[in-house]
């Protein structure tokens, strides 16, 4: 009784379940990105400060987050925190915390590189025009930084969306897991379902990421 794999997609609530799974991914990514942007801006500025303390602290933070695989961080936040301190964080909370920590580090580094890529002469000429520090940042440095940051931030967002599929390992049923569940539940009757399910997941990821890239391109064009 082996049927065509495509029919699997339309059985019961399967399509809805896939969309629900996508939402799990998107919700975590978007919340994490929204938290990461302001925190990353602060963190990036902290990284450009001349104080050795803030430099060392931010460097250690960045390297720590970079070196640790996100999976390990997820396990620490989800299981490790419970083991060590008895705080029982939900999968949702753990994921948002980990991806915000990661996003803040990455965003901070992007902000830092965007900030130092603004030539010193831009600061000089702004100040020579009588601008205060705040005005120099507000009218000259930040707008230029933003422009440089937008494509990078979008890139980070799409990376975030793809990386959040890891949350499956702390028990969250995101879109890939739903896909696997559907494939598994039908593996006796519809062995070819995998192709269709993964095809749909690919399409869903594309539909989620494409508008974000489009928005970025539009913003970039407008500000060119």
């Amino acid at each position: 009784m082996q049927g065509s794999g495509i029919s699997v997609l339309f059985m019961g609530k399967n399509l809805l379940r896939l969309l629900g799974g996508l939402w799990v991914t998107l919700r975590i990514s978007l919340i994490a990105v929204l938290l990461s942007i302001p925190l990353g801006l602060l963190f990036g500025m902290l990284m450009t400060l001349k104080s050795p303390v803030s430099r060392i602290v931010s460097r250690v933070y960045l390297e720590f987050i970079r070196i640790m695989p996100q999976l390990v961080l997820l396990f620490i936040a989800y299981f490790g925190v419970t083991r060590a301190f008895g705080w029982n964080l939900s999968g949702d909370t753990s994921a948002i915390i980990v991806f915000t920590l990661w996003g803040t580090a990455e965003m901070g580094d992007l902000v830092r590189s965007a900030l130092i890529s603004i030539p010193k002469h831009q600061y000089d000429s702004a100040m020579a025009l009588g601008m205060s520090r705040v005005q120099t940042f507000g009218y000259v440095v930040v707008p230029q930084t933003m422009r440089r940051l937008i494509p990078l931030t979008i890139n980070l967002t799409t990376r975030m969306i793809k990386t959040t599929s890891l949350v499956v390992l702390i028990g969250m049923t995101e879109v890939l897991k739903v896909g696997k569940q559907i494939i598994d539940a039908n593996r006796f009757d519809y062995p070819t379902a995998a192709l269709w399910v993964y095809g749909v997941i690919f399409l869903l990821y594309f539909l989620a990421c494409f508008p974000i890239s489009m928005l970025a391109r539009k913003l970039e064009k407008r500000w060119r």
Binding site: H121, D124, S125, M127, G130, M131, Y139, Q144, R147
Partner: peptide, 20 residues
């Protein structure tokens, strides 16, 4: 100093216009 600088115009060697 920002008030004083408004009275002093300065032009630099490298092109220092705001690119945006």
């Amino acid at each position: 100093i920002t008030e004083l600088r408004q009275k002093i115009g300065m032009v630099f060697q490298s092109y220092d216009l705001f690119p945006h």
